[in-house]
């Protein structure tokens, strides 16, 4: 006789697997398609069994300089995350430990900027970039991605910092620690899992950001999102090559996510059961 608890566990496990399959299936299909010929890729009857080919990867290697795009993605994702943390850590510290009556409103206002579609700010941002010489530069993209992610980074850090006992910081203050020492020596070590998961999320968001990176770059600073966009076409078969390009574009971030999944889950669930 299977107990109710066992049934429940089995049911939850099945549900978890089903959800994982739904989420992972498009990625799986994309990787599979990248090894097909263009005719097999566009076929109305899906091919599960086929003779795999590396032709798409070879064609991409001959057509575009992957490493250059990938390096731009690495620099922009890491750079924008560091820049966002530089501003977000003091902001979140200030709001978590020295709140005023406007703190909540400020937090909500910061988040509300994410509700505006980015195209709404395109023309002013483009003109500023043009006049400051930031068009098609990695510096420009680092700045714009950092600004775009800043509200989310501040919010996440704020919630992590709120879980740090105030007494620890007060003890430090009584020992004469300045605000900077409080942040660097006490707050950051205590919330390292939260900072790590926030950083990872910011890296992923910057890595996948397409609107600004496609609009503000041309040849020199274009990241992997532009690399993917160069393999699509309304006239001509391109699904297999596009899948290969997408696989190459997501591979680094997928590996990073895989390697750091423990920290990511730990950070995201930090304080969740309190």
């Amino acid at each position: 006789m299977i107990s109710h608890a066992t049934w429940r566990k089995m049911w939850m496990t099945a549900l978890g697997w089903a959800a994982s399959l739904v989420v992972a299936f498009p990625v799986f299909w994309m990787v599979l398609t990248s090894f097909k010929t263009e005719t097999e890729a566009i076929s109305r009857v899906p091919h599960l069994l086929f003779a795999p080919t590396l032709g798409n990867y070879r064609a991409i290697g001959a057509q575009a300089r992957y490493l250059r795009f990938a390096w731009n993605s690495v620099v922009v994702a890491m750079g924008s995350t560091l820049l966002a943390l530089l501003f977000a850590v003091p902001s979140a510290y200030s709001m978590a430990f020295h709140p005023t009556r406007r703190t909540r409103g400020t937090l909500l206002w910061m988040l509300s900027t994410k509700m505006m579609p980015p195209v709404g700010a395109l023309v002013p941002v483009y003109l500023i970039f043009r006049d400051t010489g930031l068009l098609d530069t990695r510096t420009g993209l680092v700045v714009v991605d950092a600004l775009a992610n800043l509200p989310i980074v501040v919010w996440m850090l704020y919630t992590f910092f709120k879980d740090v006992p105030r007494e620890v910081l007060e003890a430090g203050r009584m020992d004469g620690a300045s605000a900077l020492r409080e942040i660097v020596d006490l707050l950051m070590p205590l919330s390292l899992p939260g900072i790590a998961s926030t950083s990872l999320l910011a890296v992923i968001l910057a890595w996948n950001e397409a609107f600004w990176s496609l609009t503000l770059t041309a040849a020199k600073a274009a990241p992997l999102t532009a690399f993917i966009a160069s393999f699509s076409s309304p006239e001509g078969l391109f699904y297999a090559k596009l899948s290969a390009a997408s696989t190459m574009a997501i591979a680094p971030i997928l590996i990073l996510g895989w390697a750091s999944q423990k920290q990511l889950v730990r950070g995201l669930t930090f304080g969740a059961v309190k």
Binding site: L122, L135, L214, A219, A222, A229, S230, P234
Partner: peptide, 26 residues
């Protein structure tokens, strides 16, 4: 020569923005 190869709708958006703003990217 530096090449920016893109899907035509994305290309159209990018080049229109740049031409209209006299961005000089291309």
């Amino acid at each position: 020569l530096e090449w920016v190869v893109l899907e035509e709708n994305i290309l159209r958006e990018k080049t229109t923005t740049d031409a209209a703003a006299h961005g000089g990217q291309y």
